[in-house]
Structures are given as C-alpha cells and as structure tokens.
Design a protein around this nucleic acid. Structure first.
Lengths: 110, 110
DNA sequence: TGCCTCTATGTGCAATATGCATCTTGCATC
DNA sequence: GATGCAAGATGCATATTGCACATAGAGGCA
C-alpha cells in the first residue's frame, strides 16, 4: 500500500522523500514512518519503478529527487487494478450479507 | 488487507479456514497462502475480532468455524473507511496529474 | 489390511517488512 | 558555538510473509 501511494504521488510530479512523507502524513492516511518511506523508495528504485538523482540546487541538505519510470507507471496501473478488484470482492462479500439479512422482506428485490 | 478480506467474508455467514482460503483463491485476488490464512485467523481471534469453535458434525477432519464478533464488525467498518480514504487519496494524486497534463486545454476546468 | 487421495489445520524456518529511536549533514539564526 | 530545522539514512527488535512440510480423519480400492 505504501509503495502504491508513493508511485501515485510521483505520477505527474517528481518529489523527494521528505516531501512525500509529509504529503502522506497530511493526506489522512494512518501510516508512514519516515524511515519506512525512505526504505520503500530505495526498494522501488531497486525494482526499477522509480529513478532518482541528487538535487543540490536548493538550499539545505541535498534532496534525492525521485521520478516515476515507465515500469513504475505500469506497476502503478496493475496496483490500482488490484485495488479495484479488492474492493469489488469486499463489496461482493458484503452484498451477500445484505441478501442474507433481508431474505424476502424488500419487494424491490423480488 | 488479508485480515479485512477475511472479516468481510465472515460478515453474514460463518466459515472455516480452508473454505475462506478457497473463497480467496476463487475471488481473483492474488494472495492467500493457506498457512498465512490460518495464522491470520488465529491472530484475529486473539484480537477479539472473530470467535471460533470446533465443528465435528461434518465428515472428515474437524473444522474450526469462525464467526465475526461485534468488535470485529466495528474493525471491519474502520478498515473499509480507511480503504475508501486510501482510494480517495490515490484518486486525488492522479487527478492532480490529469490537471498537470492538461494545463489550460480544457475550458470546463476554467 | 495397506496404500492413496482429499480435506482440514497447523508448524518451522528463512526472508522480508515495520516501528521506533538515533545519527549525520547542511544551512540559518541567535 | 549552540540551537533548530530540513533531509536522508541506519540499527535493532519485533512482526509478517512465503514456502515447505507435518499431522490427522475419512473414504476408495486392490
């Protein structure tokens, strides 16, 4: 999930770890320890889903800027599809519950 | 994710591990090793989200039947809410990409 | 009876992931 | 020079996972 979030944030605009971690914290999602974010980015790079370079043009310590690769974009799509399937499966399970809860009570379901 | 799937499957109908694992495999979701499913169910029971009893009424080896508890139902709702927020965050990130891809091209975005 | 297969649950172990604290560097400010 | 913040990273203890394997009941079949 964290990896997918990072890839989604990197779609369309490059960013660096500290910034991505802040975005995650502000997004309302529960997770994201900064150490985990940095390590996840490195792993995404090892997998070829993002690429990075050191940005020394700004003030302060250098930033490792990340950008999405073509492979990362494909992986992101796959992840989003998997997420949709996941939600469909959950919706299906809860739908069965609705049917079980109202066996012959609702005339519109007849 | 696995825990949430299991709780959703247990909403409305009790089930046992082997059956839940089969449902997961048939649902189109990628994951679900049977050992992981069994351990996840035990952990959900330790957390108080499901309860179990041995069903020896059927043929073959005994089945450990699981059912959702009230706490598990609340946790399931929380998980589904978190999933919705997650999707909203992803959609927001990709939406920003759409805007970035079409800066001043679409008059309806004006 | 012995053997095989299927159902059903479970464990061992190595690899991976996570949470939390801590460290380092660069710059600004006091 | 001490402090504070931005930015990245590591160390370590503890989950979590994947994969293989173990166990056990029941039925089939030669």
């Amino acid at each position: 999930m964290l990896a997918t979030s990072l890839l989604a944030f990197l779609k369309g605009c490059n960013a660096y770890g500290y910034q991505l971690n802040q975005q995650l914290n502000e997004s309302g999602l529960p997770e994201s320890d900064s150490g985990t974010v940095y390590r996840s980015l490195r792993q995404l790079e090892n997998s070829g889903f993002v690429s990075s370079f050191w940005d020394t043009s700004k003030q302060g310590p250098a930033r490792r800027m990340y950008s999405l690769t073509a492979a990362g974009d494909m992986f992101l799509r796959t992840s989003l599809d998997a997420l949709n399937r996941y939600q469909e499966v959950l919706a299906g399970a809860l739908e069965r519950f609705e049917e079980a809860a109202q066996p012959t009570n609702d005339p519109t379901t007849e």
